[in-house]
Amino acid sequence: QWIQSKREDIVNQMTEACLNQSLDALLSRDLIMKEDYELVSTKPTRTSKVRQLLDTTDIQGEEFAKVIVQKLKDNKQMGLQ
C-alpha cells in the first residue's frame, strides 16, 4: 500500500491543516469512528497525530486510505515520491 511505503515522508510532511481536512472528510463519510477521531485529535503533537491516523488506516482499509491520499493531493503534498 502506497501510504505504508511513504509513511515516514507523510509523518514528516503532512500539515496540521491537511490532517484536519482528512479527519473531517473521514468523519463526514462515516469512515472513522468517533473514538478513533478522538484518539488522533487528542495526541499532543502533529507527528503523533499523523502516526495515529496512519495506524488507523492500516485497520480501516482502502476507502479510508483513498480519502487521505486525496487530501494530500488537494494540499499539494504529493511530493512524497
Rank of each mutant, 00 (worst) to 15 (best):
L54D: 06
L31G: 01
T57C: 15
S22A: 14
D55W: 06
R46G: 04
N20V: 09
K66L: 05
D9S: 09
E63Q: 06
N20S: 13
A17E: 15
Q81H: 07
I10C: 02
E63W: 00
L19R: 06
L23K: 04
R29S: 09
D30E: 13
C18Q: 08
K71N: 11
V69T: 10
E62A: 05
A17H: 13
T47D: 11
F64D: 11
Y37H: 04
T56A: 11
S5L: 10
D58H: 14
E62I: 00
R7E: 07
Q4I: 15
A65V: 00
A17Y: 12
L53K: 08
M33H: 15
E38Q: 11
W2N: 11
V69G: 05
D24Y: 10
K71G: 09
D58M: 13
K43T: 01
R29I: 01
A65K: 02
T15S: 15
D74R: 06
D9K: 06
L53I: 05
A65D: 04
S5Y: 02
E63C: 05
P44R: 09
E8G: 09
E35R: 13
K71D: 07
Q52G: 04
L53T: 07
L19S: 01
L54T: 00
T57P: 13
N12M: 14
I3G: 01
I32V: 08
L54S: 03
L27W: 10
N20L: 12
K71A: 14
L27N: 07
D9T: 08
L27Q: 09
D74K: 03
G61T: 12
N20C: 04
K71M: 12
D58Y: 10
K73Q: 14
L23S: 03
V11Q: 02
R46W: 01
N20D: 08
R29V: 03
P44K: 09
V11C: 09
V11D: 00
F64C: 15
Q60V: 09
E35D: 12
T47Y: 04
I32Q: 09
E63R: 07
N20Y: 15
Q4L: 11
K34T: 05
I68A: 08
N75L: 12
T47K: 13
T57W: 02
T42C: 12
I59V: 11
V40A: 05
A65W: 04
R46C: 09
V67H: 07
N20A: 13
K34G: 08
K73Y: 13
Q60R: 13
A65G: 04
Q21G: 07
S5P: 03
Q4R: 13
V40D: 02
E16D: 14
I10Q: 05
L53P: 07
T56D: 01
Q21H: 04
S41I: 15
R51A: 12
K66A: 11
N75T: 10
L23G: 03
Q21Y: 08
V69P: 05
L53Q: 04
A17Q: 15
D36S: 05
Q60P: 09
N12G: 11
T45N: 13
L23P: 06
G61M: 00
L31I: 00
K76M: 15
V69A: 07
V69H: 05
I68P: 06
Y37A: 12
A17T: 15
K66P: 06
E38N: 06
V69L: 09
K66F: 00
I68T: 08
L26I: 00
T57S: 15
Q60M: 11
T15F: 01
L72W: 04
V67W: 00
V11R: 05
T45W: 04
Q70C: 03
E35Y: 05
T15Y: 00
L39I: 08
A17F: 01
K66Q: 12
L53D: 02
D74I: 10
M33E: 14
V67S: 00
L23N: 09
V40W: 00
R29H: 08
N20I: 13
T45D: 14
S22I: 15
S41H: 12
M33W: 03
K71Y: 10
E16N: 10
I59T: 10
E63N: 03
N20G: 11
Q21K: 08
M33N: 12
L39K: 15
L54F: 00
D74P: 05
T47H: 15
L72V: 07
R51V: 09
P44D: 07
T42S: 14
D30N: 07
T56R: 05
L72C: 02
E63G: 06
F64H: 06
T47A: 15
P44M: 06
V50Y: 02
Q60G: 13
S48L: 13
T42H: 11
V40N: 06
E8K: 08
L26E: 08
I32S: 04
I32R: 04
V69Y: 10
Q21P: 01
K71Q: 12
I10P: 03
W2I: 14
D24P: 03
L19I: 14
V67Q: 04
R7L: 05
Q60N: 08
L26A: 08
E38P: 00
G61Q: 10
I68K: 00
S41Q: 15
K76G: 14
L53E: 05
G79V: 11
K43E: 08
T42N: 12
D55P: 03
L53Y: 01
D9Y: 12
E16G: 01
K34E: 14
T57A: 14
Y37M: 01
G61I: 00
L26H: 09
K49Y: 03
K49G: 07
K76C: 14
I68C: 01
D24Q: 05
L27C: 03
V40G: 02
E35G: 10
Q13C: 03
Q60D: 02
P44G: 08
T42M: 14
K73I: 10
D55S: 11
V40C: 09
E16Q: 05
K49R: 09
E62C: 03
D24F: 02
R51D: 05
N12R: 14
D74E: 12
E16C: 01
V11S: 04
D24T: 09
Q70A: 13
D30K: 14
Q70W: 03
Q21T: 08
S41L: 14
L23A: 07
D74L: 08
K73S: 14
V50R: 01
V11G: 05
T15E: 02
E35I: 00
I3K: 00
V67L: 05
F64R: 06
A17L: 11
M33Q: 15
D24K: 08
L72F: 13
K71L: 09
V69R: 09
V69I: 13
S22F: 00
N20P: 01
S48T: 10
D55Q: 09
L39V: 11
I10S: 03
K49E: 04
D74G: 08
V40H: 15
D55E: 13
D74Q: 10
Q52C: 10
E16W: 07
Q13W: 01
L26K: 07
E63M: 03
D74A: 13
L23M: 09
K76W: 08
R46V: 13
V40L: 02
N75E: 14
S28T: 11
S22M: 04
S48V: 05
N12K: 13
Q70N: 01
K71E: 10
D55F: 02
E63I: 05
T57G: 14
L26Q: 09
D58C: 14
Q13M: 08
S48E: 15
F64P: 10
D36N: 03
P44H: 02
L54G: 05
G61C: 12
V67T: 09
T47F: 06
K34A: 12
V50A: 01
Q52P: 05
Q4T: 15
K73F: 04
L54Q: 03
W2M: 07
E38T: 11
E38D: 15
I32P: 06
V11K: 02
K43P: 02
E8Y: 01
L72R: 03
Q52N: 00
D30V: 03
